[in-house]
């Protein structure tokens, strides 16, 4: 079984920070409202402080754990992946069931020269099996291997 590229931890850390930042305007608004209200029940700055603490703890722990539990393997006839911290998911996608393949990369991933391999099947539940944090070359290589298999067996 193969591990993801360790650089993916940095990508996830940045993404996690960004995601928590979305909540920042809300907590800031709540705090400003508190500051100008007469109520003494909550300290102003409580919400933002809480948010920052949760965000930091989350960002320090979750990407590392997620990395630790991610495994994948391209086997002869299928793609095998194990992942998940709380809910451990083990998926087998038979290559002959693959409808189409994407290699995707966003700005942050691009910065670390990483990419995601997205595998689509006709199913609905595990339609998109995404393998994140692959070196770009590796993702392309995987895609081509799978593509060749599909082309060979689907005529």
């Amino acid at each position: 079984m193969e591990l993801l590229d360790p650089a993916v931890k940095s990508v996830w850390t940045i993404k996690s920070l960004l995601r928590w930042c979305i909540l920042l305007p809300f907590s800031a608004t709540a705090d400003v409202v508190l500051l100008f209200s007469d109520s003494d029940t909550f300290l102003p700055g409580l919400w933002t402080g809480l948010l920052i603490i949760i965000c930091l703890v989350w960002t320090l722990i979750v990407p590392k754990l997620r990395y630790r539990y991610w495994r994948y393997e391209l086997r002869e006839e299928d793609l095998y992946a194990i992942r998940g911290i709380w809910n451990r998911v083990q998926t087998i996608v038979p290559l002959r069931r693959i409808q189409h393949l994407d290699v995707a990369q966003d700005l942050i991933e691009g910065n670390y020269d990483l990419a995601r391999l997205v595998v689509h099947t006709a199913g609905t539940r595990s339609t998109d099996v995404v393998i994140p944090g692959l070196p770009y070359e590796e993702a392309v290589r995987l895609r081509d291997t799978v593509r060749d298999f599909v082309a060979e067996h689907m005529d």
Binding site: N87, R88, V89, Q90, T91, P94, T121, A122
Partner: peptide, 8 residues
């Protein structure tokens, strides 16, 4: 289409 084992 796919096989999956989940464990919470």
């Amino acid at each position: 289409q796919a096989f999956e084992i989940n464990a919470t």
